[in-house]
């Protein structure tokens, strides 16, 4: 099918301000938007800069706005968009460095701020084997272990657009993953961090995060569970 692809362009070494380049191309409805951008690089304009790696939705490199909504470019097919006019822009709320590449540092700083790692100083089992965990205990936090840190959620969040100091949904998801892990001992610490000024209370449940998550994580639900744990002081 014939499509019209508009791509956000900005080269900091040449451009004063961003522009959109338009490409008319013949594509397969089963093509990924990432494929279209690769066609641009191969056949139209090789200077287009974007991040991509695994190309099937597990590495989290290519989160971008497609027709105004966050997706992984490798997980949205042309036919899913239901139109032959496709506009691709960088994710919103992080500084654009070049074309579709944004500065991810603030995002990873927020991630780091919630202690995203297992903390348990208790002695390991004497037999050197695994710490036991029932299937139910594992399922309690399994959903939030799926996060690939692509930033599609955080950059779809109205609270993050208006204040980049907000830790954002991705960081809360990763805190949730440890808070509700029966093997972790620092849930209280994380809840105190998330109870602060830039923590969970900035969430206004606009729900864009959950809609944007390419891994189908129930993000708003996870945030609500963290809010509840902060309020009750009980991790259950």
């Amino acid at each position: 099918m014939q499509i019209k692809l508009r791509v956000f362009r900005f080269d900091p070494e040449r451009d004063q301000k961003p522009r959109f380049d338009t490409f008319m191309m013949d594509v397969d409805p089963n093509d990924r938007v990432l494929d279209l951008l690769e066609y641009v690089k191969a056949d139209f304009d090789s200077t287009l800069a974007l991040r991509r790696s695994c190309a099937h939705g597990v590495c989290g490199s290519d989160a971008m706005r497609v027709n105004g909504r966050n997706y992984l470019a490798c997980k949205v097919l042309v036919k899913n968009l239901g139109t032959d006019q496709i506009t691709v822009e960088p994710i919103l709320g992080l500084k654009v460095i070049k074309d579709l590449i944004v500065d991810m540092k603030p995002f990873f700083d927020h991630y780091r701020s919630v202690l995203p790692y297992l903390i348990n100083d208790d002695p390991l089992p004497a037999d050197g084997k695994e710490r036991l965990q029932s299937p139910e205990q594992q399922l309690r936090f399994e959903d939030t272990t799926k996060c690939i840190l692509c930033a599609a959620c955080t950059t779809s969040c109205p609270s993050f657009w208006s204040d980049a100091n907000y830790v954002g949904p991705a960081a809360i998801v990763n805190a949730h993953r440890f808070i509700f892990d029966s093997r972790d001992k620092a849930g209280g610490k994380r809840l105190n961090i998330l109870n602060e000024q830039f923590g969970v209370w900035r969430c206004r449940t606009a729900f864009n995060c959950t809609e944007a998550c390419p891994r189908d994580i129930h993000i708003t639900q996870a945030i609500a569970e963290v809010k509840r744990a902060v309020n009750t002081g009980r991790i259950e």
Binding site: L118, E130, S134
Partner: peptide, 18 residues
Amino acid sequence: YDLEHMGLPFTRNPDGRI
């Protein structure tokens, strides 16, 4: 076992083992 101790969320058997 090292990975488990680092927090890797393995799927579990009913007896709690990996």
